[in-house]
Design a protein around this nucleic acid. Structure first.
Length: 268
DNA sequence: TCTGACCTGCGA
DNA sequence: TCGCAGGTCAGA
């Protein structure tokens, strides 16, 4: 599922319902999604803890819970849901949290690509690039990064070590918005093109956050609802359909084993 | 830099 | 039955 806007939506909804709540019980089923901790250790460590803060970086987010810091990456199909009965796949619920207030929270992942870690101090994101919706992400920094690399722009945008949070959907949408071909090399952009790319990254991601993310298949909000942004996609999964700008057909190509959608007429 | 592997469900 | 899906990583 989830790229930065979907993760940000999940984080905001978790804050609304679960911040300052105390976990009374955790049920964790052994599963490969647990990375540096077993399911049993994870459950034991969180029991009795109060969630004091929920913070996101790129596609990762973690809880501050009284000296314990669970870190989550939702992979392709990980979702947090408030209501277990809303789950179509109850057999894939790996984690259940029950709170003193009577609230519950469930973590489901059909494909098991998500990752869960547990730390004793706030996790370090030094291995990740800039988070593109923070003030730390500036035009000058983007220009330097572009010049540093000679890779196609689609791969550049999706490389989490460069920019943390953009995935396959938004990489295509951002490049369409900027009017730049996904095949272009990062260090070949003009100053004006870099500027367009910078503004498109911010605009597309922030708009998607306002629309609670994009639901293409698995992703749901914590409330179990679909995002809204899929109605506004201009190129993603629209191969053969007319470009909204010029009417020529949208093209689908494969880059790094992933589908890329673009308009060869509008994106040069 | 590219490919395949990891998983499961869905739609053609 | 096959190919594809929003991610990441190891290994060639």
């Amino acid at each position: 599922m989830p790229e930065l806007p979907e993760v940000e939506t999940v984080v905001r909804q978790l804050r609304t319902h679960y911040l300052h709540r105390t976990i009374s019980k955790v049920e964790a089923r052994p599963c490969r999604i647990f990375q540096n901790v077993t399911a049993a250790e994870f459950a034991r460590a969180l029991q009795g803890k109060k969630i004091q803060a929920i913070k996101r970086y790129g596609k990762f987010f973690y809880w501050e819970a009284e000296e314990v810091y669970p870190l989550f990456h939702l992979g392709m199909s990980g979702i947090f849901i408030r209501d277990r009965s809303a789950s179509r796949y109850p057999q894939h619920i790996h984690l259940s949290f029950f709170f003193e207030s009577g609230l519950a929270l469930f973590f489901q992942d059909v494909r098991k690509f998500s990752k869960i870690y547990l730390y004793q101090k706030p996790p370090d994101f030094g291995h990740l690039g800039l988070d593109p919706v923070t003030k730390n992400f500036t035009l000058n920094k983007l220009k330097k990064l572009l010049n540093l690399k000679s890779m196609n722009l689609k791969s550049f945008l999706m490389d989490q070590k460069i920019i943390a949070g953009i995935g396959n959907i938004y990489a295509s949408e951002i490049l369409f918005d900027a009017g730049i071909s996904p095949l272009r090399r990062s260090n070949r952009l003009s100053g004006r093109e870099a500027e367009r790319l910078f503004h498109s990254i911010r605009r597309i991601l922030n708009l998607a956050i306002e629309r609670f993310g994009t639901t293409y298949s698995a992703y749901r909000t914590v409330e179990g609802e679909s995002g809204q942004n899929q109605r506004f996609l201009k190129v993603y999964h629209r191969a053969g359909e007319p470009c909204v700008k010029c009417g020529n057909p949208i093209l689908k190509i494969v880059q790094n084993n992933r589908s890329t959608f673009y308009c060869p007429h509008c994106q040069r």
